[in-house]
Computed example of a mutant assay.
Amino acid sequence: MRILIRTFFRGLRLVLAPVVLIAEKLSTPKAIERSPEAQAEVERTCESLALYQFRTCPFCVKVRKEIARLGLPIEVRDAQLDLEHRQALAEGGGRLKVPCLKITRDDGPTEWLYESDAINAWLHRRFGEASPQVSPQ
């Protein structure tokens, strides 16, 4: 019975994966506009960020949409298909759970932020339109 249930959900994922990806492409918002100087500062700050994700995870899609809306060039790392990224997430973050935003601070420590709502809130606080500050804290 367990194999039958597993097979059903794998099949369901195979059918829904393209739908999720197409829906993401069609509904991704336009990026906010910044001055060239502000965008350069955002790009510099984003060099210390990396998003660990699974391509068709709906929570990861939610975070990628916020990243696109904020116009952030954050490195996206596939923890499902890339074994090195998967291992880095498990060892560094302590859990194999996505989405996870890796935040490397200028002064050295690394923070692993889980949960799509928490990640989106953090991104919005740091890079939102009304945000006067761009560097991670």
Rank of each mutant, 00 (worst) to 15 (best):
C57L: 04
D78Y: 02
Q87R: 15
L89A: 10
D82G: 03
L72C: 09
R69F: 11
P73F: 05
V76M: 14
R64C: 00
H85Y: 14
C60T: 10
A79D: 00
A90W: 07
P58T: 04
R86G: 11
E75F: 00
E66Y: 07
V61P: 09
P73K: 08
A79W: 00
Q87D: 15
D78C: 04
R86E: 14
D78H: 04
G94C: 03
R64F: 03
G71A: 11
R86M: 14
R64S: 01
R77H: 01
Q80W: 00
L72P: 06
F59I: 05
I74F: 05
C60H: 10
L70R: 05
Q80S: 00
L70Q: 02
F59D: 09
C57T: 04
C57G: 05
Q87S: 15
E66W: 08
C60I: 11
K65Q: 13
L81A: 07
A68D: 10
R86A: 13
E66F: 07
G92I: 03
D78M: 03
A68Q: 11
V61R: 12
P73S: 05
V63G: 07
C60F: 10
G94P: 03
V61A: 10
A79E: 00
E84S: 14
H85R: 12
F59P: 07
D78W: 05
R95P: 10
E75G: 05
R64H: 03
I67P: 12
K62H: 15
V76D: 08
A88F: 04
E66N: 14
L72T: 06
D82N: 14
R86N: 13
A88I: 08
I67T: 12
E66H: 13
V63S: 06
G92P: 03
E91K: 14
V61M: 11
I67H: 13
A90E: 13
L72G: 08
V63E: 05
L83G: 09
V63C: 06
F59G: 07
Q80D: 00
G71M: 10
K65T: 04
A79C: 01
E91V: 14
Q87K: 15
G94W: 03
V63K: 06
E75H: 04
R69A: 15
I67D: 13
V61L: 09
R77F: 01
L72D: 07
R86L: 12
V61Q: 10
A90N: 10
V61W: 07
Q80N: 00
L70T: 03
F59C: 07
